[in-house]
Simulated scan of single mutants.
Amino acid sequence: MTLSSPVSHLDSASNDASIAAPTLLKINQLSVAYGGIKAVKGIDLEVREGELVTLIGANGAGKTTTLKAITGTLPDCRVSGHIDYLGVSLKGRTAFALVQQKLAMVPEGRGVFTRMSIRENLMIGAYTSTDKHQVENDIDYWFSVFPRLKERSSQMAGTLSGGEQQMLAMARALMSHPRLLLLDEPSMGLSPIMVEKIFEVIRNVSAQGVTILLVEQNAKLALEAAHRCYVMESGLITMQGQASEMLNDPRIKAAYLGES
């Protein structure tokens, strides 16, 4: 499957992320505390244009909290440090403003609008667009990528299976033509066949030049798809490097791949 213009924002983007590429997202000394509990403890992280960067770690490591800090969707807590997108601080930015700036997120648990149809969910994803013809073309495109959604286009999203909801959540986010896409545990709770389909789409979206920050429980698939990787443990970044090299690191194999 080859993705075309509906997701591509960089017509001349290289599939190989270059170290000279501009930094889209830069996190410096980010800390998040809920009462007396520090969930994130002063981490640094950056994502350059055209990269697929994965953030792996055990449950409770602080990965989802990091993504929610980026999007400003955390519950009441103390957040310190700096988060810059396109060289500008995200402090105080609303989710609406982030989508307008081409930053989209597929949250853990999918977050579809359960009482709206599949088509309505996709149209919500394109709410910043004023080009109705382009919106319809994009909907048709994602229906071609995910035929199950087309078959159920008028069905309420809340009646879909978990895998179908994940398809819809991804397609909805990509309807906004994001420059940076945040994915939080896209394979969670899905069948092996559905996981394979979701990662096929992730790889192809990345190949079209969409920059991705991926939080994923399946470390092997994440490392195989990514350019670079950060490992998070107990709120700290403990390792980072090229994903292809970390895939063969004995420490990663033992801790996350079930290999000795």
Rank of each mutant, 00 (worst) to 15 (best):
G62P: 05
A126H: 01
I118R: 03
T73R: 10
S191M: 11
D131W: 04
C77L: 10
S234T: 14
I193P: 05
T65H: 00
L160Y: 03
A222F: 02
V201L: 02
K38Y: 09
Q166S: 14
D44F: 00
V135H: 11
I202G: 06
G62Y: 00
S244D: 14
K63N: 02
T94E: 10
L168Q: 01
M239S: 01
S31V: 07
T71V: 15
M188I: 13
G50Y: 00
D16R: 12
G109C: 08
I56A: 03
Q165M: 15
A255L: 07
Q166K: 13
M194D: 00
L174H: 04
A58E: 10
V106P: 01
M167R: 04
M232L: 14
T238F: 02
M194F: 08
R228N: 07
Q29L: 03
G87C: 11
K150H: 09
G158P: 04
L67N: 02
G258W: 02
D131N: 15
R152I: 12
L236F: 09
G111I: 10
T130G: 14
V99W: 00
L10Q: 13
E46Q: 14
Y85W: 09
N137Y: 04
R148Q: 10
G125Q: 06
L98E: 01
I237R: 00
L214H: 01
Q29V: 02
Y85D: 05
S4A: 08
R228Y: 06
G72N: 13
E151L: 14
G109M: 05
K68W: 03
A58Q: 09
S4P: 03
H82G: 11
N204F: 01
S153C: 07
G162S: 07
M246G: 00
A13K: 11
A21G: 09
T66D: 03
H133W: 05
K63I: 01
N248H: 13
A95P: 05
V135S: 09
A207M: 09
L236M: 12
V88H: 13
I19V: 15
E151T: 14
F143H: 15
T128P: 02
Y34K: 08
S144A: 15
E259C: 04
V47N: 03
C229V: 15
T211E: 10
D140H: 14
L214I: 03
E224V: 11
A243F: 02
R251G: 00
A243S: 10
L30P: 00
A255K: 04
K26I: 07
Q217C: 11
